[in-house]
Design a binder for these strands. Structure first.
Lengths: 146, 146
DNA sequence: GTGCCTGTCGAGAATGAGTCTCAATACGTT
DNA sequence: AACGTATTGAGACTCATTCTCGACAGGCAC
């Protein structure tokens, strides 16, 4: 089987071994549109009897985070979640109802950040913008005023 | 003793009792320019024999967060930290070397967020921008190229 | 294809942040 | 000063995450 899965490909390209557990985790992640937590993945893995231990699951997530294939997200609730994502610098727009995640380009934000750097005198090395709201779908369900 | 401490004042204004442990925590927090973690506070409290239990410390932080006197921050390392801050909506610019925190007004960012909302179709409810970099001081120490 | 080296894995113990319980205590009002 | 209630302390508890270490398996060399 050729690795049609981009996550598996990223692992291979970075020189990591393409092991069964890693493929399994990659497969699970590929199914998510929105964010997922480590606990959710663990349950999903257990249900399908993928035989991935918790330690391995966390190791895989750590690895994938390092490769920028998934990104770690801090929800307003304080929970940690992960989102599968593209590798370029970008931000996340998270639906607070259904969890769906949209990627947002840096766009106008880069200018705002440059402006902040100028005014503050800081040399800005990185920034992270997290946006929370309702996606179109959930707005429709919730009604226009809710 | 009149409560000269703005943190203590905020507690009082919100109708909370001004207890010893809360004053102690407020006093500790007032000493920080930059961010601090719950663990750091705990150690500081123990060193000074303030007699503030862990539970109380966390309760105080929760309370102060609710009052927007401190804000919870997620460092790139994944650690949770707190920063003392003003009450209006704003963002944080954290020096990744010394931990000093500067408040940043929303400014141009609000426009960028509105633009994102328009393009994505999401109804954005909240956003959080975290900026990391070197403050002037640390830039000078680190030299122009480091 | 076979073997070997080393990266990776599993199981479960360990860690550590944060929460909870409940009896004891201390605000601050009267 | 007394009282009612908010708050506290101590430590057990939870739950996510990490670590340890012997066993295993991917993939390069031959």
């Amino acid at each position: 089987m050729t690795s049609s899965d981009p996550i598996v490909e990223a692992l291979g390209a970075a020189g990591y071994r393409l092991t069964g557990p890693r493929r399994a985790v990659a497969g699970l992640i590929a199914e998510y549109d929105g964010h997922f937590t480590a606990a959710e993945l663990e349950i999903a893995a257990r249900e399908r009897r993928l035989g991935v231990s918790r330690a391995t699951l966390f190791r895989a997530l750590e690895l994938l985070t390092e490769l920028h294939v998934v990104e770690r997200l801090d929800l307003p609730s304080g929970e940690h979640a992960y989102v599968p994502c593209v590798r370029e610098h970008h931000h996340h727009l998270v639906c607070s109802r259904c969890g769906r995640v949209a990627d947002v380009e840096d766009g106008a934000l880069a200018d705002a950040v440059a402006e902040i750097a100028r005014r503050s005198g800081y040399r800005i090395e990185s920034h992270r913008l997290e946006l929370f709201g309702l996606c179109r779908h959930c707005q429709a369900k919730a009604g226009p005023s809710a």
